[in-house]
């Protein structure tokens, strides 16, 4: 179906399918009402505070500490997720063992399990009298109610992102590539490092960025194991809630704006990684 001479600068290509107007109109209206208008309210509130006001709010020591806790621990959790996500995806795709499909399905559990449930479950495991907490307590190690507890929760919520971005790529690897590498005299380690890993790298980075972005905003599963001590184990989203409970809308908005900015930066980074990967490897 090619129109004879499409007029220049036409916004929509003609089509025989009906219903564009109503579907498109409804989509825009619903998107505007549910997502764009509320986010605009945040931007409006932020602009009424002004850049200097935002800066001042961010530099408040307690806020700064919370942002540092959130971003630092999310970074660490993202890295652990990326590394173990790669290993888990590799084992699930390449190795055959009983229960493999079941385990593969279970990887999505952190997506499906409500965060509050994950939170109290992790607290029950890692509290000093919990299943795992009890084991490490004699070693002088405390996990729950310290930044380490936050880290564990963040690794939990980010794991599926890391596994699911790498998994399809590993499944698509052409075995002939590995055979060629082996016939040319490479050891298995060399093949893994120099033939298989480079094309997987963009997906690993994307998985890291997704896990990181999710971890930065995570609230439910963290607050139960964090201990929530100001300056020590208080995350930025919790501080937003605290400011709201004090009716300090400006303070809450300032932190939210900074976090939103960071998550858009992460989104942009993901898009850049994918554009680079398409150029370099011809796939996402």
């Amino acid at each position: 179906m090619t129109a004879a001479a499409p007029p220049l600068r036409r916004l929509r290509r003609p089509s025989a399918i009906p219903g564009f107007g109503i579907a498109f109109g409804y989509t825009l209206a619903y998107l505007g009402l549910i997502v764009l208008l509320p986010l605009a309210a945040l931007v409006l509130k932020a602009s009424s505070i002004g850049l200097s006001g935002l800066w001042a709010a961010a530099m408040e020591p307690r806020v700064l500490a919370a942002l540092r806790t959130s971003f630092g621990l999310s970074l660490a959790a993202g890295i652990v997720d990326a590394v173990f996500g790669l290993i888990v995806a590799w084992v699930l795709v390449r190795y055959r063992f009983p229960g493999r499909k079941l385990i593969d399905a279970a990887v999505d559990l952190p997506f499906a399990l409500p965060t509050a449930v994950a939170g109290i479950a992790l607290a029950a495991l890692y509290a000093p009298n919990g299943w795992i907490g009890r084991l490490v307590e004699p070693l002088g190690l405390r996990i729950a109610f310290t930044p380490l507890g936050i880290f564990i929760a963040l690794v939990f919520v980010g794991l599926p992102f890391a596994v699911r971005t790498v998994e399809p790529l590993i499944a698509e690897i052409d075995r002939e590539l590995e055979e060629a590498s082996a016939t040319l005299g490479a050891t298995r380690g060399q093949t893994l490092r120099r033939v298989l890993l480079p094309p997987l790298l963009p997906a690993v980075l994307t998985g890291f960025a997704l896990a990181f972005a999710r971890a930065v905003g995570e609230y439910g599963s963290v607050i139960f194991v964090a201990g929530n001590m100001p300056y020590v184990s208080e995350i930025a989203p919790l501080l937003i809630v605290i400011k709201l409970e004090e009716f300090n809308y400006a303070g809450a908005t300032a932190i939210a704006t900074i976090m939103l900015g960071m998550s858009f930066a992460a989104l942009l980074a993901i898009n850049l990684i994918q554009a680079w990967s398409r150029r370099r490897f011809g796939h996402v």
Binding site: V35, L37, P38, L39, A41, L42, K45, T115, A213, V216, G217, E218, Y219, G220, P237, L238, I240, V241, L244, Y249, A252, T253, A256, M259, L260, S263, F264, A266, L267
Partner: peptide, 17 residues
């Protein structure tokens, strides 16, 4: 977009409205 917004911020925007 809503996937990349922290849940807490998702609630906050409605409080601001």
């Amino acid at each position: 977009l809503p996937f990349s917004v922290s849940p807490v911020v998702s609630g906050l925007v409605y409080v601001l409205l």
